[in-house]
Design a protein around this nucleic acid. Structure first.
Lengths: 210, 210
DNA sequence: AACTTATTATGAACATTGTTTTTTATTTTG
DNA sequence: CAAAATAAAAAACAATGTTCATAATAAGTT
């Protein structure tokens, strides 16, 4: 029985992604299944395979959506190029670190999905997926250009990745309980990472010294 | 047909762990299965379940073994409390960071297994698993006590986690190709992280300033 | 308007998974 | 040597992702 065009493919596409994000709030990734997603939206498993190409590619689509949501949340307070808050660039980076962790903590299963899912088989991530991650790096890079206005693009890229890598690592270890410390001190660690590294870089570049 | 006691349970336990580590060099985690491990060592799947309690617990046992291997590799060069190399404490931490990434890069599937596998259901990691991770943190903490000899234990704990969190985050993103940079610059990033943060901390504590 | 042709979602089938239960072969015990 | 215990395996089961043939609907044609 195939009643046709009750929803367009694009609609089913969106419905499935929403369903996964919804299900991942009560079910962890390993207990999720294509069939559960299908029944959640009232379609057959094979329909989802027709549209997405496979279960893994459905999850990759979800991953992109989550990355977009994360980006939106990070820029929610201080629009990308908008008027600056009382916060300086360093304070903005620090706040983004805290927001990053907060998002991961409130959407653990989705967050783990994003960073545990690799591209299908040796092949690279999709372009839009790359761009979604790149946007995140650029959020920090933009602030760094204000802090180190004479640094080369290569230096900015390196520093932004070091900063984000640290934020990401601490967040990953924290939400899996592998830091062996009370959750409350994680913001302190994130701040120590951001401020400590920026202080060191500033001194190294001779911009702010004593 | 049950020929009994050809191997003791402890032997099968070890054989299975070795088999998983071996298989993970040519097969990624999602293509591994309990049945493949069983046939690799010439036993039935149910036998492994009897011994480990389940597939996930077999993988957790592997995770512990990999953590131990990683620790051994990190201390291979400079024994924990042994005579110091020409390297100072900061250089040792930097070298450990590079070794950490090298290990992860040479054992990608095993490394991902360790940090993507969570304890069965809301319950904490096993004690030995915790200790295996703690040993890693302490490797850095020990060096930090030489750099900041008047810092409190809490400060040392915090700094060691910030350092290791950053090393771990950069490593994770790098082996999944999510840093969007040539692999060759990752050591530079790790060094920038370690040296930048330590420089910032030193300045903040007023120990080494200008 | 009736008939033909394309779609489109589906349901059944398949191979594989982790796990449970039942059987079978071996060892230990009385 | 017989009987009880036990260790490993085979068989059975439910659930998974995926493929394929099918039925139901839409679109096209005369």
């Amino acid at each position: 029985m195939a009643r046709r065009k009750e929803h367009t493919h694009a609609e089913i596409h969106g419905m499935a992604i929403i369903a996964v994000i919804h299900l991942l709030q009560t079910v962890n990734l390993e207990n999720l299944s294509l069939r559960k997603v299908a029944t959640e939206i009232g379609y057959a498993p094979s329909t989802l395979i027709n549209i997405f190409g496979g279960y893994q590619q459905l999850l990759l689509a979800v991953s992109e959506q989550v990355l977009t949501d994360l980006y939106q949340q990070l820029v929610a307070d201080y629009g990308e190029g908008a008027a600056m808050q009382p916060l300086n660039a360093q304070g903005i980076i620090e706040k983004m670190a805290h927001d990053y962790y907060q998002f991961a903590n409130e959407n653990r299963a989705c967050f783990k999905l994003v960073f545990e899912l690799s591209a299908p088989q040796g092949q690279a991530l999709s372009l839009s997926h790359q761009q979604a991650i790149d946007r995140l790096f650029n959020l920090i890079a933009n602030q760094l250009t204000q802090l180190f206005d004479d640094a080369s693009n290569a230096d900015i890229g390196l520093m932004s990745r070091v900063l984000w890598g640290g934020i990401h690592g601490l967040t990953c270890l924290a939400i899996d309980g592998k830091l062996f410390t009370e959750q409350a001190v994680l913001p302190t660690m994130l701040s120590s990472h951001v401020n400590g590294y920026l202080l060191g870089m500033a001194q190294q570049k001779g911009q702010t010294c004593c």
